[in-house]
């Protein structure tokens, strides 16, 4: 009978005592310790650079280790003339020693030069530049749709009566488990072909963004909604929520002012991860909705074996992830003051 009672037993008589609250027994030489304010940003920057370097090197290794002549690989399915071959050898330093070749590749990247697509006879940066806009617009809109939908549903159903909660849970499960392209096709069928509310393809007007953003954002809303609701419900059971209610706050204020912030912490992690995944998911969505964008360019580059473009996309994705994780870190600190002083 005791188990079900909300009455709390005095479990921790000495709260400051458990080792969990203590800093880990890590011993460093006092002289080597960076000042606290410098520690985190510097460590972040170093690890960010390391990730980018690793991405660039992996892409480079893939190029070198691929079977066949490196020049052949770089030419891919494009026009194969002696002039282009000479150009490749010169630009990639293929006539020089391995180390010099690798370092000049890194140096080139450091200058922001992503190389040249020999198939398209254009700079890779130029090829990508035109495509980044639509993809970023799509990804951010989808992320926003996912986050807003998840927030609204979670706040509306957390700790409420059973039925709305169940219906929303099922909807979330469906959104998560159905593949994106199916969601996309269903949306197209209903809202474009049948109702004619939105254009079938293209990216010309803002209306064309609605369906792809929904197709991409609904699964995000599904997962995020579940995580948020669970977080909210856990937070609403905490003693501080009881204290807030005992002050006379209404349930809505308890959620908005207290519980939501606690529920956001795990959700923020997921959102960051999702925003990265969305970039990958954009491939399918962009193809399905006939939108220009990075996803389609990547697909084309992969199928045409346009190595320089593929390599650039790898490095670009790494950069996006690094940026997102830095933003996440900042967001954590904003939300949880305990991380600031730690």
């Amino acid at each position: 009978m005791t188990a079900a009672l909300p009455a709390r037993r005095p479990t921790t008589a000495t709260p400051a005592e458990p080792p969990a609250t203590r800093p880990p027994a890590r011993r460093r030489l006092p002289g080597l310790r960076a000042p606290a304010w410098l520690g985190t940003p510097v460590r972040r920057l170093v690890s960010a650079v390391a990730v980018l370097w690793a991405a660039a090197t992996t892409a480079y290794a893939a190029l070198l280790l691929a079977p066949g002549d490196t020049v052949d690989i770089l030419v891919g399915d494009g026009a194969d003339t002696p002039e282009i071959r000479a150009q490749i050898v010169a630009e990639w330093g293929l006539d020089r020693p391995d180390a010099v070749r690798y370092l000049s590749y890194l140096g080139r990247l450091l200058h922001g030069d992503l190389g040249r697509s020999y198939q398209l006879q254009r700079d890779v940066a130029e090829v990508l530049a035109g495509q980044v806009g639509p993809t970023v617009r799509l990804t951010l809109t989808a992320a926003a749709v996912g986050v807003v939908l998840a927030l609204v549903l979670a706040v509306a159903t957390a700790g409420r009566s059973v039925w709305p909660r169940r219906i929303v849970s099922v909807a979330e499960l469906v959104a998560v488990s159905v593949p994106q392209f199916v969601i996309g096709i269903v949306l197209l069928f209903v809202f474009s072909f049948s109702l004619g509310w939105f254009p079938v393809s293209g990216a010309a007007d803002p209306q064309a963004l609605v369906l792809p953003a929904l197709a991409l954002g609904l699964p995000v809303a599904g997962v995020l909604g579940q995580v948020l609701r669970e977080g909210l419900e856990r937070a609403l059971e905490q003693p501080f929520a009881v204290t807030a209610r005992a002050r006379g706050l209404g349930e809505r204020a308890v959620v908005a002012r207290h519980a939501l912030r606690h529920a956001l912490l795990p959700a923020v992690t997921l959102t960051g991860w999702f925003t990265g995944v969305l970039l990958g998911g954009a491939v399918i969505t962009e193809t399905l909705f006939g939108r220009p964008g990075l996803g389609r360019v990547t697909m084309q580059a992969v199928s045409a074996k346009d190595m320089p473009v593929v390599m650039a996309v790898v490095i670009l994705s790494a950069a996006v992830y690094v940026t997102i994780s830095a933003l996440l870190d900042l967001a954590y600190r904003l939300i949880d003051p305990r991380l600031r002083s730690a």
């Binding site: 709260p15 501080f240 204290t243 002012r257 912030r261 949880d336 305990r338």
Partner: peptide, 8 residues
């Protein structure tokens, strides 16, 4: 520690 909102 838990009866006051730790984030505020």
């Amino acid at each position: 520690l838990v009866s006051l909102d730790p984030l505020r």
